[in-house]
């Protein structure tokens, strides 16, 4: 038994469904961004992305296969000449669906499906930048505290070598250094809180 298609069935017949998907894909490649119901957008996404994969391959066989779906040669040319090369270093995920709430009239959940235009891997890049920005704030404070503790230990060792006079200095230095470490930790916490706000 063939695997059933994922997602909602559309139209009155398989032929109608084929036409709906082909027309949606044609409109998407013509305008780059279309507003439709969420169910149609979810059906369109894998369908359109397979066509973009053909466009990335770019040979005559791929072009003929796309032409069986998209009948407009101008749009197929645009797909192979501009959209395919633009997606060259994007490993899938060529389209983006954003929900935009319900349609007035029948309250159908609507969505915008668009070709991803911005530079490759923006979302991943953003995640990469956001985490290190937040994470080093805490380790930096901890590391500084650790460095100070080591310095104190060194001072202690030096003091032991120096003799009894150094011990008093050591106690004083520890008293002064401890509040600094606290204030730095607080500053680190504040810096961590700011990017989220």
């Amino acid at each position: 038994m063939p695997t059933p298609t994922k997602g909602a069935r559309m139209g009155g017949s398989p032929a109608h469904q084929k036409h709906i998907l082909a027309n949606l894909a044609t409109s998407l490649f013509e305008h780059g961004k279309i507003t439709t119901t969420e169910a149609r957008a979810r059906r369109l996404r894998p369908y359109a992305e397979k066509l973009i994969t053909f466009a990335k391959r770019g040979d005559m066989h791929a072009r003929r296969q796309v032409l069986t779906v998209i009948k407009d040669k101008g749009i197929v040319h645009n797909l192979f000449a501009e959209i395919g090369p633009a997606m060259a270093d994007r490993p899938g995920g060529y389209t983006r669906i954003t929900k935009i709430g319900h349609r007035k009239g029948d309250a159908a959940p609507m969505a915008v499906i668009e070709l991803v235009q911005d530079e490759a891997g923006t979302s991943r890049a953003r995640r990469r930048t956001r985490r290190p920005a937040a994470a080093p704030a805490v380790p930096a404070a901890v590391a500084e505290a650790a460095v100070e503790a080591e310095a104190a230990a060194d001072a202690e060792a030096a003091a032991d070598l120096a003799g009894a006079h150094g011990a008093e200095d050591l106690n004083e230095s520890e008293d002064t250094e401890a509040p600094e470490a606290d204030s730095e930790a607080e500053a680190g916490a504040e810096a961590e809180a700011e990017p989220e706000a």
Binding site: T35, T98, K99, I100, G101, V112
Partner: peptide, 16 residues
């Protein structure tokens, strides 16, 4: 999980 109908942005990206 939906674009804002007032300003038309989703995660600070202009959608509509």
């Amino acid at each position: 999980h939906a674009a804002c109908p007032t300003c038309g942005t989703y995660r600070r990206r202009q959608v509509l």
